[in-house]
Structures are given as C-alpha cells and as structure tokens.
Design a protein around this nucleic acid. Structure first.
Lengths: 279, 279
DNA sequence: TCGAAAATAGAATATTTATTCTGTTTTGCG
DNA sequence: CGCAAAACAGAATAAATATTCTATTTTCGA
C-alpha cells in the first residue's frame, strides 16, 4: 500500500485517514486504538498493544506493514522520537488548553472537561448503592419501561432508549412528538424512568405521579434532595453535576444512565438463563 | 541494601538521596544519569541506558539491585506506570463485566465512572485546539445550524439542540420523525454538525456529503481517524470513548458538545456587542 | 450457494534484550 | 607494600519480544 514509512506522527495520521474506512475489521480496531492511545505506543510491546486493542499480535504486525513500516519496532521508533523529552500528562494538557489563550474557546473546553471529571467523582459518593441495586431489580422485572425526560433530560432519556433497544429490553421513549398523552400507553405493572432537573418539568412530575397512582414503580433520575419527584414514593437516583458558570454538563448523568441500562441488560440475561435451566 | 522495590518515583528518589555519596564510582555515575534522565528510562533498554551513563550494562543491573529492584525490568515498570497509569484494557474489562454480573450492580457503575474519567482525560489529548477553534468560528457565523446524529449519537445532537435553543442560536434537530428528507431544509450558507460513531450511519454521512456538495461547512463529531466523515472536507472533532466490555459511554462526547455550544454562544454574544458598538 | 481471495489466529522462529557468571582490576586497610 | 574485599568489564546464558509462516475462517462476487 505504502512503500515507505511515515516520517512524522502527522504523516502517520494522514495515512490513517487516507486508507479511511476501507480497512478490514481488525485493522480498523487497531487504528482506532492507536489513535486513542498514541502516547502509550512509545513504551509498550506488541503483545500489550494487541491485548489493549483486543486483537492478535500478528494483526498488529500486519497493520504496521500496511502503513509502510517495516515492522512494529519501526513504528514504535516514530512514536518515541515524537515523544521529545516528555509528553504532557493530563494535568499539564489541561493547563495548556486553558492557558494557551484565555479567550480561546479551548479554555472553555478545559473547564467542562474538569467539571465532568469532578461530577463523575461526586457520583461515586452521591449515588446510594442500595437504590441503584433496587432500580436494577425493578427494571429487570418490568414488562415495559417508559422513559420520560424533557429539555436537558431528554438526551439522557434518548440514550437510555437507544441502550435498551440494543439489549432487547422493551422500552418506550416519550418524546412529546404530536403532544400525545403518554398516560394512554401505560399499563399496570409497567415501570417509569422519570428524569428531570431543576427547573423541574411539570409533565415529567405529572406522569410519575400518575404512574405511582396506579401502583406502578418509578425510578427517578434527578438532581437534588429537594426535587419534587422525591415526594412521590419513587426509587431515587441522585446526580449532582458541577457547573461551569451558568451552564451545567451532563457527563455524570449520562454515565449513570449507561451503567443503569447495562446492569439491567445483564440482570435480564442472567434471569433468562436461569429460567431456561429450570424448565 | 534495600529488601523491597520502591513503589513510587518519589520513593525511588528518596532512596537515591539516602544512599547519597557513599556509592562506588560506577554506581554514582548511574545514579546521576538516571536522576537527570528519568523520563527516558521508561523506554530505553539496558544497553541504551548503560551507554548514556558511560558504563557497562552489568553495572546498570547491579545498580537496580542495589536499590531493591529485582532487575532492570522492574525498575522500568515503575517509570512507565508513572507516565501512564494502566491501560484501558478491553479484554480484562470484559472479564470484569462478567464478574460484576454476579456481584452488586454498583461495581458496573464504578466501571463506567472510571471509563468516563479516562475518556475525558483522553479528550484533552485527542482534540485538536485548532479544529475546535475553527468549529466555533464557523458556527458563530452560521445563519442556521443543522444537527444530525442517530442512535448513539442522537443524545448528543439533542443536547446540542437544547443548548443552542437556550442561547438563542438558530438550530434544527433532524430527528428523523416522519422520515422527512433533511436536505429540503438546508440552504446555502447553513452549517451542519454531523455526529456519528462506528458503525457509521449512512444517513448522517450522506447529509454531510450533500452539504459539502453545495459548499456548506460541516463540523464532524466522530470517533476515529478512519471515520468516513473525515474523507469529506470537514472540520473534524475527534473523541475516543473508553469502553467497558462491549459498551461505550458518552461522557467525553457530551462534554465536548456542551463546551462547543457554550463557546459558540459566547462568540455570538461578543460579535453582537461589537456590531452594536460599531453602529 | 458456491468458489476464490482476503483476512485472521495461533503456532513457530528469529531477534533483541535482560540477567547472570567468571575472570580481572581497583580500592581500602593493616 | 601486600592482602582481602569489593567493584568491574565482558562474555555467556536466559528470557522476552518481534516477526514470519501456515492452517483456518471469513468475506465477497458470480
């Protein structure tokens, strides 16, 4: 494909783009992993890299040769040379983004990255393991899951919808299209995941109240102890996002959502297996 | 001299000072060189180091053992870990995921929190400040922003829609409701934010290509260098999310989105003020 | 659905690199 | 000075790592 090795990392990246999408599966895996972890190439073995990318060492070799290197060692040499006496770690990269020019937009990006990290850290503390476990149990039993969340909560709801779909868990995303009343879709025994943050959306609260009224369980993803959702008898999952100025990120909330959905998927799967064994 | 290996680089340096001046000649040479080039230890061989310090490889070995290491490899490990703590190791994470299944679901949550943190850290490295700045500029000038992203990318698109709305920036979320063709909504001069991750959505790629075809700018939020979006002439914003088993979070992507939208909002505001002053 | 071509996994091999060993030189002390 | 102990260089060996080869699987086009 190429007859000489790339001379710089930029060269390398260009080639990666040039070969583009028409790479075989493993080669693409390899390319992606290297792109996301280029700094580690400098001091890792073929075996390490292969394991990290989830492929075979020989596949790594083929990848190197595909890009014009004689082998892995030559590729590694490139990354080592580029290392140039110390790659910045996270802290100094962050600092760079901020300080380069304080009016440059990347300063903002740095703020949000840091806020996201802090929010995630907080999540470990604020989440109640018991509630989380209970939420997973309830959702694993649910014949149908109703997802409701508007405005800032809508991305979370839609992510849950995507994730549940991928794992074959029945779920409906109430997106408000056509202003249909979601109550009509709800049956006895269904479970609701209600997501809302201050200022709380009345529609979300109403639906949660309605569900509780007919004896259905409600999982609440919300922000504070004073959230109106908590006054209903729900399973509460608290997330507090650190905000940057007047803006609030969503990193922790979305991570909670993915963990929740995967846990539910896993719980269902093990339940199915058990049922199969017993029959 | 010491009966166990130092656990951190600080430990290591302390020992170096502790043994102080009463070292044999070659050992001192070695100590000095390592002290002055500690960052190179991570990826150099015994032979390299020996040559650098002007001594024999075997002397390096003796030095390592003098400090309590079992050998050179162990010492090198210390320095490598100091640079990049741990790999996002797909294979072992998958294993953890399976373990967690039987365990409490919060173990899974912890995994996703950690993955999110790492993804955010990576973002500081993979994002190209120039592209980000360019994206903000382009979007600040856009008469209309078209947001497109399906499946896993949809939450990101919807978050951008929410955020732009809040800041009074004109934007349309193409959500695919009614299977309307988004092309008809696009005018010359509009800007597209196309979001897609592997496996790439054809609809998203097509729209991006269409927009480029009529000379409109496209901002691409995508995952790897091999993304098909990159082959169009777009402003690329790379995010690589660390995944847990077969599942991939969204923490870094959503943080990038919020930072992008807020930066655009800020840029617009300052532009308006300037325009006002000039009139 | 079949057959050819490409891609892949895993074993086999070659190469590099770490470590130990041995004979020699240097150092420190009476 | 002379002896013992430590330190050393260089060769020899062991371990690890990179690379190639081959049988098997997957993919793609007719």
């Amino acid at each position: 494909m190429f007859d000489s090795a790339p001379e710089t990392v930029e060269d390398f990246n260009e080639r990666l783009i040039a070969v583009g999408g028409d790479l075989p599966k493993r080669m693409k895996q390899c390319a992606d992993f290297i792109h996301g972890n280029s700094e580690r190439i400098a001091f890792s073995t073929v075996a390490d890299l292969a394991q990290g990318a989830g492929i075979q060492p020989s596949a790594v070799m083929r990848f190197c040769q595909l890009l014009g290197f004689s082998g892995y060692s030559e590729m590694q040499k490139l990354f080592r040379e580029n290392y140039s006496g110390g790659w910045p770690d996270y802290a100094s990269r962050l600092h760079n983004l901020k300080e380069a020019r304080s009016d440059h937009p990347t300063a903002l990006l740095a703020e949000f990255i840091e806020a996201g990290r802090q929010s995630l850290e907080n999540l470990t503390a604020t989440i109640d393991p018991e509630s989380f476990g209970r939420a997973v149990e309830v959702l694993a039993e649910a014949p149908m899951i109703h997802l409701i969340g508007f405005r800032r909560a809508f991305p979370v709801a839609s992510y849950l919808a995507y994730s549940f779909e991928k794992m074959d868990v029945s779920a409906i995303l109430h997106d408000g299209v056509g202003k249909l009343n979601p109550r009509h879709a709800m049956r006895k025994g269904d479970v609701v995941i209600a997501i809302t943050f201050s200022p709380y959306s009345q529609e979300t609260i109403d639906l949660a109240a309605y569900a509780r009224g007919m004896g259905n369980q409600v999982i609440a993803i919300t922000d504070s102890l004073t959230s109106p959702l908590r006054r209903l008898d729900v399973v509460p999952l608290s997330v507090s996002e650190v905000d940057v100025g007047a803006f609030r990120g969503l990193a922790a909330t979305i991570s909670l959502a993915v963990a929740l959905s995967v846990a539910v998927g896993a719980a269902r799967e093990s339940k199915e297996k058990q049922a199969l064994r017993e029959s």
